[in-house]
Design a protein around this nucleic acid. Structure first.
Lengths: 153, 153
DNA sequence: ATCCCTGCAAATCGTTTGCAAGAGC
DNA sequence: GCTCTTGCAAACGATTTGCAGGGAT
């Protein structure tokens, strides 16, 4: 869908600024740095990867700041957490990703991605009735991938 | 789907024994106790809940043993991890699952459950074509729950 | 006798928080 | 000046591991 061009990033930046303003928070240096780094990332990434990426570029952000800003980005709807049963949380930004889901292999933990088809909207009324404000969703299949299935059983 | 009758449990137990034998591990007391407790559990459960449940019944298993056996069960394909972006891992057994989904609050991490409506079957052909053998699925919404949303913007 | 299992206590690791100094409005 | 931000170090909580004793085969 959207390419990661300047225009899309500006839109996301505006969304972030808007969210921050609304929450009485500021567009601080740490938020700038991490926002940029996140926008430069592709696919999924972890907090630790951001920390390292920033350190490598001599961008001055501490680990706690990374976590704090990730939390902001999450609430602002700029990124989302992907649902892996893993110790590290994985994130990805929303803007340049077609909504997609994951099918994860219970053996090798590898996963397949596949596109969203909007069927999830069936659930929206239910959640809205509960006063739950939806930021995003992910469908997560469990099973055994081709490679693992071929090995045995 | 299947009811948790003796037959199904026996099949799972056999699967577990088979896995253990194949791995050069024994059907020890700790594994017995935790296997049984897991089969008795409904919905999702955490390692901590198992520890407590066992303690309450005066079943003698230490925390490390619970984790060790959970790992065995995971590898054996008896249980799986459910996808929460949470610090605690959640598990549920595979054999008696009622398909359902979750909506989780990014602030308090509480979640709402809601039933499956079979719309996910739209995705099956795609995954099957990839040779991915589906064991189950979970749709995971994230957002802000009513309580958290009311506290402030 | 050997190998596996287990509990204890200590270690790990990702993440969070208290606090005091610094920066922006 | 008040408020938000940040880094540091310490705290935290779930999970893991080293090790020594006990059991099973």
């Amino acid at each position: 869908m959207g390419k990661s061009n300047a225009h899309t990033i500006d839109r996301e930046r505006a969304r972030f600024s808007g969210f921050l303003a609304k929450s009485g928070k500021r567009v601080s240096q740490g938020r700038e740095v991490i926002f940029n780094q996140v926008m430069r990332s592709h696919g999924h990434f972890t907090a630790e990867e951001l920390v390292k990426a920033c350190a490598q570029k001599k961008l001055d952000v501490s680990r706690p700041t990374v976590f704090r800003v990730l939390h902001d980005l999450l609430e602002a709807g700029i990124i989302r957490e992907t649902a892996f049963g893993d110790k590290h949380r994985h994130f990805e930004h929303v803007y340049d990703e077609k909504p997609h889901h994951h099918a994860q292999c219970v053996r090798c933990h590898g996963f397949i991605e596949f596109p969203d088809r909007k069927e999830d909207e069936v659930y929206h009324p239910f959640l809205e009735k509960q006063g739950f404000k939806i930021l995003g969703h992910e469908m997560h299949f469990y099973g055994i991938c081709k490679a693992c299935g071929n090995k045995e059983s």
